[in-house]
C-alpha cells in the first residue's frame, strides 16, 4: 500500500514557562486542553486539530502550533 505521510498540526506547550492560568482550556473548541495538577497545560494530541486558538489566547505566549508527521 502506498501510504502518504500526513502532516498534522498540533499545539505544543512550553511547559517550563506555562503559568497554568487556563485561558487555553477555556478557548479550545475541542476540549483538547487541560491543566495538569495546576502546574502546566497539557494537550491531548488525539483531540487537538491545530486550530491555534490557544496559541493566540495564551497570555504568556508559550503555546505554538507545530507540524507533526503522523
Amino acid at each position: 500500500m502506498n501510504q502518504t505521510m500526513r502532516v498534522k498540526r498540533k499545539a505544543r506547550v512550553e511547559t517550563s514557562v506555562c503559568v497554568a492560568c487556563g485561558c487555553c482550556v477555556k478557548v479550545c473548541p475541542m476540549g483538547a486542553l487541560s491543566i495538569s495538577d495546576g502546574i502546566y497545560a497539557k494537550v491531548d494530541d488525539s483531540a487537538c486539530v491545530g486550530c491555534g486558538k490557544c496559541a493566540k489566547e495564551c497570555p504568556a505566549s508559550v503555546i505554538s502550533i507545530e507540524e507533526v508527521t503522523a
Binding site: A20, C21, G22, V25, K26, I35, D37, G38
Partner: peptide, 9 residues
C-alpha cells in the same frame, strides 16, 4: 484540591 481551579474557572 491541589489545582488552580480558581485561575482556571
Amino acid at each position: 484540591g491541589g489545582n488552580k481551579g480558581y485561575c482556571n474557572r
